[in-house]
């Protein structure tokens, strides 16, 4: 996983609330394997007409945002289905961070597990950013070490779960950490099997 320290890139404004994971990746594309790449189908039905032509009034469909590294959106971004493909679509498109007032819980966990940073800012600050970005396309900087979003004339501090921050800064996944506790897990499970024998599925019938 790519570590995230300090990234400067174009930020695409999406002044929409409740962009759920069905919008981020419509169900019909989920048969794809990861190797095929999910970037081209990110926000597919918002970005493209039925005939495949880009929708000119949707910012991310415009050519100038083809290289966007950030999305700024309204509340409850990534709510809905647990499909991790929603994060694959953002990551494969080149999005490194999403800035919004709130995020779906499962989506947020999936994001960390794929090196995508989610920045929570208060609603009024997000609106401020959206106004700036609507005026003209602009690069912004997200600094995870300093926990700050920097836009022309703005410096917005944010907070993030320390465990998630460490993972993102280093590009770590959980598995190695968990496997280092293997003995402890086995001990726990052995004890549990004797104290809760009813927990095991009864396969006798």
């Amino acid at each position: 996983m790519k570590p995230f320290t300090r990234v400067t890139a174009l930020a695409c404004p999406l002044p929409i609330a409740n962009i759920d994971t069905d919008q981020l990746i419509p169900a019909r594309f989920m048969r794809r394997t990861r190797k095929e790449g999910y970037g081209p189908v990110l926000l597919h039905d918002l970005r493209f007409e039925a005939d495949g032509a880009p929708k000119p009034d949707f910012p991310l469909a415009r050519p100038e945002y083809g290289s966007a590294g950030f999305i700024v959106a309204r509340r409850n971004f990534g709510s809905g289905s647990s499909r991790e493909a929603a994060v694959y679509a953002l990551a494969d498109f080149g999005i490194r961070a999403v800035i919004a007032p709130s995020f779906g819980d499962i989506f947020a966990q999936n994001a960390v597990n794929n090196g995508l940073l989610l920045v929570r800012l208060p609603e009024d600050q997000v609106e401020q950013l959206l106004v700036k970005l609507a005026a003209e396309p602009a690069e912004i900087t997200v600094d995870l070490e300093r926990k700050q979003v920097e836009a022309p004339g703005l410096a917005l501090p944010f907070t993030l779960d320390p465990v998630w921050r460490t993972k993102l800064l280093n590009g770590w996944d959980d598995l190695d950490l968990t496997l280092s506790h293997r003995a402890e897990i086995e001990q726990f499970m052995a004890h549990d099997a004797s104290s809760r024998p009813w927990m095991m599925p009864d396969r006798s019938v």
């Binding site: 647990s82 499909r83 991790e84 994060v87 989506f107 999936n110 959980d174």
Partner: peptide, 13 residues
């Protein structure tokens, strides 16, 4: 509910 990376983690551990 969990995502695919977590599914893999539960499967493995």
């Amino acid at each position: 509910g969990i995502g695919a990376s977590e599914v893999a983690h539960v499967l493995m551990t």
